[in-house]
């Protein structure tokens, strides 16, 4: 497969929360970070990223603030909120469970 795998539904939220847990970031920086840490395996549609950001903001998990960016232009920085941090834990746990389960199933089929 030459195409990078599509994201499993719902995991984009997890990834965003995880990235923002490190430091507040604007949308552009998040796309850069995503491709960087996943070594280009995961490619997020840039548009989808922004709708996900807006959804998370309205869930109250992340909060936005306009700040001058590294190139001195105003950019919208997103940061994790307290509830967002809890949500990150929940989603991480979910993901771990899910991936363990899927790994199990996949291995069962192989053996």
């Amino acid at each position: 497969m030459s195409r990078p795998s599509d994201l499993v539904q719902g995991t984009l939220d997890l990834l965003i929360l995880k990235i923002l847990a490190l430091e507040p970031m604007h949308g552009w920086a998040i796309t850069q970070r995503l491709s960087q840490i996943s070594s280009d395996v995961l490619r997020v549609s840039e548009g989808a990223l922004y709708s996900a950001l807006h959804k998370l903001e309205h869930e109250g998990w992340i909060a936005a603030e306009w700040k001058p960016s590294e190139n001195n232009r105003r950019a919208k920085y997103y940061a994790l909120t307290r509830t967002g941090r809890k949500q990150l834990q929940i989603e991480t746990a979910n993901w771990t469970r899910l991936s363990v389960a899927i790994t199990h199933i996949v291995q069962l089929q192989r053996s």
């Binding site: 840039e46 548009g47 989808a48 922004y50 709708s51 996900a52 807006h54 959804k55 309205h58």
Partner: peptide, 18 residues
Amino acid sequence: RAFGGVELRKDVCRDARG
């Protein structure tokens, strides 16, 4: 092009805002 239609995205973002 990479962004995939700015206006369309704006609509999706508005929906996300709900």
